[in-house]
Design a protein around this nucleic acid. Structure first.
Length: 368
RNA sequence: GUGGGUAUGGCGUAGUUGGCUAACGCGCCAGAUUGUGGUUCUGGAGACCGUGGGUUCAAGUCCCACUACCCACC
């Protein structure tokens, strides 16, 4: 199932499997610039439709030349549709057939977003890949609710595709070649997942995502859902596992045919001082690192480790709440993820992914 | 040198008229966090209450001495 591929876009080639670096509001939290992203081998930046819509606004960003010109990131950008916010900001919304009524988490302003609005916003942003507007039901949702939710998500997907085609054909479109990925849902109900995958596979989209996972179900359930979904999606288009996950999750998901990933873990954990190494995570704030002169990871090629910055200095920066500490920790973690993906691609190229998977999982569970 | 005050886990403090396993914040340790609020949450270890005596059924709480530190006056 595991596969190695190369996706060509107007903003450059994406080598898969790939991990997209999360920049929800148009910036990596922790203070990394577009230049920084180049220095840690980032391929794709991921931004959020809802967050950019409520601040600063997609129309203004369009006036600034689109998200690429605005952020100075010239490589591929994937924009999430705002669908996840229906789930994560659930106390602030109301779902109907036309779309979703939000109350802005910034100023309480009323916002309506449906498939058409989401596509228009993403078109204004001019991202490389737009995500369909979907609903992400809770993992423990009842079957009857999931059935009607998925049916609606399918209808929304059809509307997304139609609107995207219309927008791409307009004269003044920021990115007339914007791609659209559909999203599979169905919680942990295998037959709903499978049926939905078959249905959206016929829509000939540019890529397909598996959404609604890592929201409370077990790892086994998650892997099982992937196994019951990916085989029914088109073989020659990329698959994207949304919001996942740990290095272990990624290695297992690649094994089951996933090509795209994104997750807040490397950046959020970086901000909390939990750093990734080849042998598990290290908590840089711990007292044991107070006078540790070694870099985070001896084998790491990131700018922080290569720059000779010690664990002791990083601990000091984090304890002293210095912005540089966040920046260094996030930079290291994202480099770790990007490098992990490079290793995975190398193993696939060499035809030894099975062996790599076993060895890597063993290493990661070893402990620092 | 004289007068006054304070001494409680690593640090800062609570400890009612002496009475159950000495409390809290920070720190420390261990977890949680999966299409991002740089948050937040959950556990855990750690002091026999400056030292030595005394009063009492019972003292961190009262008395005496000593030691250290702080303030004021010389």
């Amino acid at each position: 199932m595991a596969k190695r591929a190369r996706m060509t876009t107007v903003h450059g080639v994406i080598e898969t499997p790939v991990f997209m670096n999360v920049a929800t509001a148009g910036a990596i939290k922790g203070g990394l610039s577009a230049d920084d992203l180049h220095s840690i081998n980032t391929q794709v930046m991921l931004c959020n439709t809802y967050h950019l819509h409520v601040r600063t606004g997609d129309v203004k960003i369009r006036q600034m030349g689109g998200l690429h010109a605005f952020t100075r990131w010239d490589r591929p950008i994937l924009t999430d549709s705002g669908g996840f916010q229906v789930f994560s900001l659930s106390d602030l919304r109301k779902i109907k057939e036309e779309g979703v009524s939000f109350k802005s988490h910034i100023d309480g302003a009323h916002i309506f977003m449906g498939p058409e609005q989401s596509m228009q916003i993403q078109s204004n942003l001019g991202s490389t890949i737009a995500m369909a507007f979907d609903e992400c039901p809770p993992a423990l949702a009842e079957r009857s609710y999931v059935e009607q939710s998925v049916a609606r998500t399918t209808r929304w997907l059809e509307r997304c595709r139609k609107e995207m085609n219309r927008l791409n054909s307009l004269e003044e479109t920021v990115n007339p070649q914007q791609l659209l990925f559909g999203i599979n849902q169905g919680a942990v109900y295998q037959d709903i997942r499978t049926d939905h995958a078959k249905a959206i596979a016929e829509m000939e989209l540019d890529g397909y995502a598996v959404g609604g996972l890592a929201v409370g179900e077990t790892h086994e359930q998650m892997y099982s859902v992937i196994e019951n979904t990916v085989p029914y999606l088109p073989k020659d288009t990329p698959t994207y596992l949304m919001g996942v996950g740990t290095p272990e999750n990624i290695i297992e998901a690649v094994y089951r045919g996933i090509d795209f990933f994104d997750c807040v873990y490397p950046s959020r954990n970086g901000r909390h001082g939990n750093l990734y190494t080849d042998h598990g995570t290290l908590r840089i704030r711990n007292a044991r690192y107070e006078t540790d002169t070694r870099p985070i990871d001896e084998n790491c090629g990131c700018p922080v480790c290569r720059g000779g910055y010690s664990r002791a200095y990083l601990r000091h920066l984090m304890k002293a709440d210095e912005a540089l500490g966040l920046r260094f920790c996030v930079m290291h973690n994202l480099y770790f993820y990007n490098h992990l993906m490079q290793e995975i691609r190398d193993a696939l190229d060499a035809g030894c992914y099975e062996a790599y998977r076993k060895r890597k999982l063993a290493d990661l569970s070893e402990g620092v």
